[in-house]
């Protein structure tokens, strides 16, 4: 179980490399410019779903970007406390940016 923190926009190489390494029992947290992948109609969202990983987004970043009003219900918005809890649940954490 790995927690992937993804801070790169859909279409970037970091985004693609991250998705290539996500396994079904991993957790994935979208932050920074990755939050646009949580848009309900984003083609990138289909790729996130296909990984089978649990999908999270940092709530403050999603709200800043204007993503929240059009966000997919498959992605769970979390605050910083939940981020810490998520880190504790995963033995390893890898940052993609």
């Amino acid at each position: 179980m790995i927690l992937h923190t993804l801070n790169a926009s859909p279409g970037s190489t970091a985004f693609d490399h991250c998705l290539a390494q996500v396994a079904a029992d991993d957790g994935l947290l979208l932050m920074g410019n990755a939050v646009y992948a949580a848009l309900a109609n984003a083609p990138a969202l289909a790729r996130l779903r296909a990984t089978g990983a649990r999908l999270h987004v940092l709530e403050d970043d999603a709200r800043t970007a204007g993503v929240t009003p059009q966000m997919s219900e498959d992605v769970l918005a979390i605050d910083f406390d939940a981020f810490v809890a998520l880190s504790e649940q995963h033995a390893r954490q890898v940052a993609w940016f």
Partner: peptide, 22 residues
């Protein structure tokens, strides 16, 4: 390219203590 993301409505700059680009 990524510039179109600037046009998303309802950006809340306050959530990140920044000004709303939108």
């Amino acid at each position: 390219d990524h510039g179109v993301l600037q046009l998303l409505p309802q950006q809340e700059g306050a959530a990140s203590e920044t000004r709303s680009h939108g």
